[in-house]
Design a protein around this nucleic acid. Structure first.
Lengths: 204, 204, 204, 204
DNA sequence: GATGAATGAGTATTCATTCAT
DNA sequence: GATGAATGAATACTCATTCAT
């Protein structure tokens, strides 16, 4: 950042696609680390391993991320962003049935598209101490908001909303977990059928 | 215990409370390690940590377990034994509705009683490579048998058995996970209500 | 060295004196370890000891050698190379008297120049199991070839070749050992005289 | 030792064949340790290993020997005794030809009978520091005496006594070493022939 | 005499991190 | 930006030795 001006002088043509190169390399490191963390675990994935897989030097890693912890944190923040997107925090009032349908559809899509993130998430979510270091306030806040909305959604539609919420939550978590356990070997049809079954249960 | 008289001759003073001491200490180590593994993760729990928490010396750990790996394996084998008990392999023919009810009741009970084991299990189950080192043949075999029986149970009772099985599995896994995420803060009533809800869904 | 230009692009500042640094340090470690192994024994020479003597950190050792075993193996392979050179495997046919003279001269020279290697060799050669892990096929092969040639040399010149070979071998081994026991305190003249004596006995 | 009297009271019949039992066990430990030390090396042979092989408890080892070091020392002292016997220190004056013949005969016999001791000796003899801790004054003294006598023996019989002594020593050491390297696979005839050859060389 | 549980210092090895170039 | 040599604290594990019984 500080010596961008210097570079500019030295190779005036490249201007600052430097920025772009940096962004690409950053992404590369994040992806490589995510895959290793998810599949082997955080502690079992060494910086050396990550840098080798990403084909860059160990030292360079620290040019992009302050520490291994920081790397994990950034990866996790990406995941949080995904989740936040799912929760879609723009309104505070009420979830309509239509919105619930969208939410579920989106959820299933996310699981398929972001398996690795979910693998990592499930590993971390169980170790409370570690987990709490990683989540930030806006995440917690958003989660609470969502829970309030969901509560309201169920309260207005079900006789026994508490249990239905538990069931709903369990199925969401459980399906994701089962999907990962199966090594993502769910057929598209099966996912669709499962989704439809959830619609039947929870859309009113 | 059986050969106490023999030992008496050889070690006139200590007799073999040795046996008892060993069993107790073994249990102590297993428990301590299980708790750490479950809450901090296998790699993040060092032998030093475990020994300190168990108030014994590092060296003594190796008097009882060949290696950290072996310690994990033995813990996991205990869990497998719990699961096997749940699956109850005495018959090969058919699951009755009554048996399904018992299975579910037992399952919920096990989750409450063995939280730590489940925490460990969920962490390990996600890292395929690690996981496969830990499971043994009799476990795999038993699992397959159970799956066959469950398939049959659902085939005979539901129009769309595949989806129902998926739902069933997801709820089982999801409930356990949610229970652990909540730090076991489910009230007894809530668990009962949840169980009842499952009965409604799957007992026919 | 060959791809310096390539490296230049990738690491503009350091070029690859890396190569040179590595070679030097490698040599330093090998020498230090050899001396300790030879004089204190393999097991009694700890990695900490070696690294302290070589004035580098413990960790760096493993940047150059995979393990203590591997370090020993590489040292031993150097020794094998020395021996192979002595045995000089270029011809398969026959040892002339002249060649025997050269062999003996070279042997005495090698002992003087490589005392430490011989110290290590004698220690290892006695523990069969350890020794056999260290020798490689090409060494064994070469040894057999040499033995065949020596057998022929003696068969053609002596009435009782078997005993003469035993005597020959014993003197070679025994002189080396005695030289080491004396802490290399043999005068040059004494070595020469000893060599001459061997010439009288075995050159015909 | 202190509580022998106590034992006497408790089982008056056994009197003190206690002494004998003790001596036997002592011997057992010494033999077991010697074999391990010789074949695997001192450091690679653990107390646990020795005690298991000797079928006694670890603790009991320390009832007989102060430390592992002490155990080695006692083994080595046994070897020294063997050597001293060979050197036969009763006279200070002169070695006759007849005595030299006896010495050689005895030497070859000792090698055959005490391979393990020699294995240990050769390992230790090379590591000066370790070796010097183990030898005692009477050994050094005896060695010097023997060397003086040998010097005189050769001085009176050979033109170039220094070289002949070196040759003599080298052959002795070298033969022993070669014998051990061959895993004691020398035929009796070969040993006899070798001995005869030495007689020819050195008996005058 | 005899046992083996227990200790803790020591060993090989790994790994996040730093830094000169 | 980029490299990889270098560090040292931490890790799993071993082993001589002690000690209560």
């Amino acid at each position: 950042m500080t010596n961008r001006s210097i570079n500019k002088k030295m190779s005036p043509k490249t201007a600052d696609q430097f920025e772009e190169i940096r962004a690409d390399k950053r992404k590369l490191i994040l992806d490589t680390a995510l895959n290793l963390f998810a599949n082997k675990g955080y502690h079992a994935s060494s910086i050396t391993m990550i840098s080798k897989k990403a084909q860059i030097s160990k030292g360079l890693m620290y040019n992009y991320f302050e520490s291994k912890q920081a790397l994990l944190r950034e990866i996790f923040e990406d995941f949080i962003r995904i989740i936040m997107n799912l929760m879609n925090p723009d309104h505070d009032d009420e979830i309509t049935t239509e919105e619930m349908r969208d939410f579920l559809s989106f959820y299933f899509k996310l699981i398929e598209e972001n398996q690795v993130y979910w693998k990592l998430y499930f590993q971390l979510s169980i170790k409370k101490e570690t987990f709490e270091i990683l989540i930030n306030d806006s995440y917690s806040e958003q989660m609470q908001k969502s829970q309030r909305l969901i509560k309201r959604y169920f309260a207005e539609r079900f006789d026994n909303p508490d249990i239905e919420i538990s069931l709903f939550t369990s199925i969401l978590k459980g399906f994701a977990l089962d999907y990962l356990h199966s090594d993502a070997n769910y057929s598209q049809e099966k996912i669709e059928a499962f989704k439809k079954r959830m619609f039947e249960m929870f859309l009113r």
